[in-house]
């Protein structure tokens, strides 16, 4: 496939004495889907949040599309338009209806005209299957619907990559499927995605790369077939055993 869209070089981050990221290096090719997994506290969410500058780090580089992620606010804003983010707790804007949630960034940040933004916004809501809910406020939507609106909102800025931070962890099983279906569709249509998740089914069937982290380090990076079939490290084996994703023979 094509060259790396995101590359992380020797990234280090400390919370006081706790080393959250320990010389993490990583490449994400354009159009690929990468799943980050690992036990809680392993640094996977921290790593993800570094990719769009939501977290600061002490050493190392994050390079997106050839440009290093700078700490200057203006550069950071430009970067963030290129990288969309979907949060565990949705973080929809509660005072805006679904369509306005999707259109606000194109209108305010992208300076699009209202009519254009709304036409594009309705198309995105249709893509996540929520065209009929456009005028509802987040509080009137189910969790799964809210997360789908959040995905549409992230897509509205036409980002070059999408980051998912445990997008299904706050959802009931039925809603999880709604959201995963959208994510599968996105991955299959060639969206560059980095996903922190415990949904091993998604990792196994959809991801191109699986990265297993523990204690701030990347322990294992492999394609899903070999990772699930025969994890190389003892820790990955233990982790898969714990969450019930036993290696298939």
């Amino acid at each position: 496939m094509s060259e790396a869209l995101i590359s992380v070089r020797s990234l280090c981050k400390w919370y006081g004495a706790w080393c959250a990221l320990d010389h993490v290096s990583l490449e994400v090719r354009a159009g690929s889907c990468t799943v980050l997994c690992g036990p809680s506290g392993s640094g996977k969410s921290t790593l993800l949040r570094c990719l769009n500058g939501l977290e600061e780090w002490e050493a190392g580089d994050v390079i997106i599309g050839g440009c290093p992620v700078a700490r200057r606010a203006r550069d950071l804003r430009r970067l963030r338009r290129e990288v969309g983010m979907v949060f565990q707790s949705f973080n929809l804007f509660p005072h805006l209806d679904a369509l306005a949630n999707v259109t606000i960034a194109p209108r305010v940040v992208g300076r699009q005209r209202r009519a254009d933004a709304e036409r594009a916004g309705m198309a995105l809501l249709a893509r996540v299957g929520l065209a009929d809910q456009a005028r509802k406020l987040p509080a009137d939507l189910s969790g799964g619907q809210q997360q789908r609106v959040a995905i549409a909102r992230a897509l509205a800025m036409a980002p070059r990559a999408l980051l998912f931070d445990e997008p299904t962890s706050a959802l009931d099983p039925e809603s999880i499927k709604e959201v995963l279906d959208i994510m599968v569709e996105l991955a299959e249509s060639g969206t560059t995605m980095v996903v922190v998740t415990h949904e091993m089914g998604f990792a196994r069937h959809v991801a191109h790369n699986v990265i297993f982290m523990d204690r701030g380090r990347i322990v294992e990076a492999a394609d899903p077939a070999s990772f699930f079939k025969a994890p190389a490290s003892e820790r990955a084996r233990a982790f898969l055993g714990e969450i019930g994703a036993t290696p298939v023979a």
Partner: peptide, 24 residues
């Protein structure tokens, strides 16, 4: 989360205040 969501969409400080934070 509201600040993070707005920040992740590329909102600058004043836009974030004007469209996301202050209305709420």
């Amino acid at each position: 989360g509201q600040y993070e969501a707005a920040g992740a969409l590329g909102f600058g400080f004043w836009n974030m205040q004007g469209y996301v934070v202050m209305p709420q």
